[in-house]
Simulated assay, not measured.
Amino acid sequence: METKAVVLFLLSILALQLTQELDNTYELIDVVNNKKTSWSARANFPNSTTDDLKKMIRQKLGFFTKDETGTIYHKLKYYENIPKFFDAREQWPECESIISYVRDQGSCASSWAITPAAVMSDRLCIESKGKELIHISDEDLITCCKSCSDFENTCDGGMHHKVWEYWRDYGIVSGGGHDSMTGCKPTSSSTFLNGTSPHCVKRCTNPYFNATANYTQEKYFGEIIYKVPKREKQIQIEIMTQGPVAAVMAVFEDFFFYEHGVYKHVTGKFVGTHVVKILGWGEGEKDKYWLAANTWGNQWGKLKGIFHTLRYNFHAGVGMEVRAGRKNAELSNKENIVNSSVSVQVNRNLLFASLFGLCIIVIVILIEEY
C-alpha cells in the first residue's frame, strides 16, 4: 500500500508539472494576443509543451565558425528600383511546386540540413528553367555528411555551412519528405519519427524509385557556394536574381505559436538558432517583412509553414548569416566574389573526369609520336 501511495504521489506531481507547462504555453499565447501587436498567436502543436517544442531547436548551427566561404556582392548601381513586393513562387511559376513545398523536420532537429536542401532544390529548378523538378534529399545529408555534425546522432544538431561544402564536393541525391516515396532517398521513419539518424547508406532507399539507379550517378552538385552580405538590398537582389536563400534566425518561445501577421519578438525566452528559407519580401500596414518558409510542416501557422517576419534591422536575428549556392559557377558582370579561391571549386566527379580525359589525350599523343 505504501508503494502504491508513493507511485500515486509521484504521478500527481508529474501531472501537476505538465499542467503548469501547458498553462504557461497558453499564458504565452494570451500575452501575445492581448498586446495586439503585428501578429497573432495560436497553439500550432496543441499536445506539446513549450519544453517539447524547444527540442526542435536543440541543434548546434556553428554559424560563428570562421570558415573561408566567399561572399558575393551585387553591384547596386544596376538595381536602383527594387520592388516593394517579391515572391519567388510568382517570379518562377515553372518552379512553384518546388519553391512552395514546406519541409517538415519531424522529431529531428535538422533545419541545418533541411533548409539548405530546400534552397538547393529551388535553385536547381530555377537555373534549369523548370526542367529539374526534384527535391534534394535532406536524409542523404543527415545520414552521410559526417563533417556536418559533431554529434553521433546528427538529429541533435549540425553546421549548415558544412552542408553547402558537401553539396559542392560530394553531391546529394534526390529525396522527398517522410512517407512521400519520391526520389532516391526520402526521409526515413527513424529520422522523422524517432529523431535518430540512421547509418549512411550509399544507395537509393526508395523501393519505388528507379530500380537500376546508380547512387553516385543520381547525385546533384553545386559548383559555387557563398555567403550573401548581411545587408537588406544585397539579400533582396540575390533572391530576385538567383532564387531563395538560407538564413539563420534567433528563435524565442513565442515563435512556436505564430499564427499570422508580421512576426516580431513579444515575449518568452531565447531558445536557440534555426535556419529558414527566405523566398521574398513585402510591406504590411506598418511593417516591412521577409517572406520565409519554416521547417515545421504545413500545420504550423495559418499560412501552412510560411511566415512573415520583421525586416527592419534583421529582427530576431533573421539574416545574421545568409548562404546560397549555384549549379553554374559563372558570375555576371553585375556581381563579384571575395575570397573566390576557396568557394569556387569543381566537384570531385568533374575533376576526376577531366583528369581522366587529360590522361587519354597524353597517351594518344605519345602513341602518335612513337
Rank of each mutant, 00 (worst) to 15 (best):
R89P: 01
D67Y: 09
R231V: 15
L141V: 03
V7I: 15
T309N: 07
V248H: 03
A15K: 09
H199Y: 15
F352Q: 10
N313W: 13
Q217K: 14
N333E: 15
F151N: 03
Y166D: 00
S40L: 13
H178A: 04
Y312V: 13
V31I: 15
V6F: 14
S147K: 09
I72L: 08
K36Y: 13
A88C: 09
K288D: 10
V6Q: 14
S189I: 05
W112S: 01
S188Q: 01
L16A: 11
W112K: 01
L331P: 03
Q242K: 13
V344Q: 09
G357M: 06
L133T: 07
A316R: 02
V7L: 15
N333W: 14
V173S: 02
I29D: 05
E335R: 07
V338K: 09
Y79M: 08
K288T: 11
H260G: 10
S341H: 15
L61F: 05
L350Y: 14
K202E: 13
T216D: 12
F64N: 15
S107G: 08
I114W: 00
E232I: 12
G325K: 01
E27H: 15
E165D: 08
H265P: 07
Y26F: 11
W281I: 05
F209S: 06
M120I: 06
N34P: 14
P229C: 08
N339A: 14
A213D: 06
V266P: 07
Q299H: 06
C359R: 10
E152K: 12
T37K: 11
E96T: 05
G282F: 05
I278F: 03
R58H: 08
N33A: 12
W92K: 03
M120A: 07
Y312C: 13
F209R: 07
F209P: 04
G195W: 01
F256Q: 00
C145F: 00
H135F: 06
D67H: 11
I136D: 00
V245T: 05
L76G: 12
S100K: 04
V228Q: 02
K55N: 07
T191I: 04
D287S: 12
L358H: 10
E368P: 10
S110Q: 02
T216Y: 13
T143V: 05
F356V: 10
G319A: 06
L8K: 12
Q217D: 13
W92M: 03
N349D: 12
D150M: 08
M181C: 13
E165N: 06
T241C: 10
R89Y: 05
E96C: 06
S189L: 06
L350Q: 15
G261E: 02
Y78H: 12
A117W: 00
K77F: 10
G357I: 05
L28H: 04
Q217T: 11
E21Q: 12
Q20Y: 13
M320A: 09
F352R: 10
E90A: 11
F86C: 08
R89A: 04
L310Q: 04
S180W: 04
E90L: 09
L76D: 14
S190E: 07
Y73S: 10
Y220T: 07
S128Q: 04
M56E: 05
F192E: 00
K54M: 11
E152W: 11
V228G: 02
G243P: 02
D140V: 02
A43M: 02
L18M: 14
V163I: 05
